[in-house]
């Protein structure tokens, strides 16, 4: 029997090209395995072979995703894969988006099964809704667990075997509902669930509510020339030396800093603490992330009433959604207290 042909997608980091300084490299394909592909091949065993590995810089993919997806499809088509495996991306946001985007394109254009893996809070999960995405831990320390589950599911898909529920196979719910005959009618199940809830016993909902945090849009502001505007960033712009020691990844806090007397940010006074993008451009001119220079000009010209004297910054890199929400609520309360009318948020 011929071996199952697998093509693997990884980013520049796992391809051992480099870190953020290489995040702009265009896609490339090489025969055989690279980096985590070695373990992938080991787990696949003798029945399947990783025939090629395609890799791309995270920024390059994120900024040109349509073009890159098409390029990747063309590159891997030449290797005639039976299945496409991307990642795992764990909690790396741009990498997760790249994995999901590549999987969607490959599935659509080549009509082969695709599998990826990432942490449940990775923004790639939302982009790849409907794909088979194995739920992984949030760090690459769990590479083996992630790849083991991905391989198990991949082999089942390519061999056309029956796929179990998300819990059984370890993939994130795809939003697909399947009909089956239940032993008890809905009313009985609902009352059972209610009784367990009242008794504070564990129960499992049959219809989980979506967890998206949606807020109604604020009404537009009028009379901009009389209003105070504030700036907040997840791009990590802090006073030089990072006085609050905001972490370069998985930030545990945000900072509140003064803009008093500054008509722009300079490389002498500010820098970025963010560890998730190449800091060269932001350190050279921090206004590229937090546009204080032009906001001051607009303040002097009377276009806006006033620029708030304080700004808020954290590092968005790998920061959990729960923490980010907490910082957001705290920052919003302080801005309201200061009678700020509107906020410009910049992210990297």
């Amino acid at each position: 029997m011929e071996k199952i042909r697998v093509v693997h997608y990884i980013n520049q980091f796992f391809a051992q090209i480099g870190a953020e300084d290489k995040a702009h490299v265009p896609p490339e394909i090489k025969q055989g395995v690279i980096g985590p592909g070695i373990l992938l091949q080991k787990l696949l065993g003798d029945s399947a072979e990783v025939v090629a590995t395609v890799f791309c810089g995270d920024n390059y993919y994120a900024e040109k995703s349509d073009v890159v997806s098409e390029e990747i499809v063309n590159m891997i088509a030449a290797y005639k894969p039976d299945i496409f495996i991307a990642g795992p991306a764990f909690n790396a946001g741009r990498y997760g988006i790249a994995c999901s985007t590549a999987c969607l394109s490959v599935a659509k254009k080549l009509s082969i099964p695709v599998v990826t893996g990432m942490f449940k809070e990775n923004p790639g999960v939302e982009i790849g809704r409907g794909l088979y995405i194995i739920e992984t831990a949030n760090s690459a320390a769990k590479m083996k667990d992630a790849l083991t589950a991905m391989v198990g599911l991949a082999l089942k898909l390519v061999n056309d075997e029956e796929i179990g529920t998300p819990e059984e196979e370890g993939y994130l719910p795809r939003g697909v509902r399947e009909n089956y005959f239940a032993e008890k009618i809905g009313a009985v199940r609902a009352v059972d669930m209610l009784l367990r809830k009242l008794a504070e016993e564990p129960y499992e909902t049959e219809y989980p509510l979506p967890s998206f945090d949606r807020v109604p849009a604020s009404p537009p502001i009028i009379d901009l020339k009389d209003r105070m505007i504030a700036v907040v960033t997840s791009g990590g712009i802090v006073p030089k030396g990072n006085p609050d020691r905001i972490e370069s990844s998985s930030a545990s806090k945000f900072g509140e800093y003064s803009l008093a007397g500054l008509d722009k940010l300079t490389s002498a006074g500010h820098e970025t603490a963010h560890g998730g993008y190449d800091p060269v451009y932001a350190n050279e001119d921090p206004n590229r992330v937090l546009p204080i220079d032009v906001l001051r000009q607009l303040e002097q010209e009377g276009v806006i009433g006033k620029l708030h004297e304080l700004y808020y910054a954290t590092v968005g890199n790998g920061t959990s959604v729960a923490n980010a929400k907490k910082y957001g609520e705290d920052i919003a309360a302080r801005l309201k207290e200061a009678a700020v009318s509107a906020v410009i948020l910049t992210s990297t």
């Binding site: 920024n59 923004p123 945090d213 993008y277 451009y281 001119d285 992330v289 910049t346 992210s347 990297t348």
Partner: peptide, 23 residues
């Protein structure tokens, strides 16, 4: 932009590049 859409931002301005959104 897809990240901002996912997290629920209501008014989104696409910018230049990840390491220099406003430059």
């Amino acid at each position: 932009v897809p990240i901002s859409l996912t997290v629920g931002a209501n008014r989104i301005i696409p910018t230049i590049a990840i390491p220099h959104p406003l430059g």
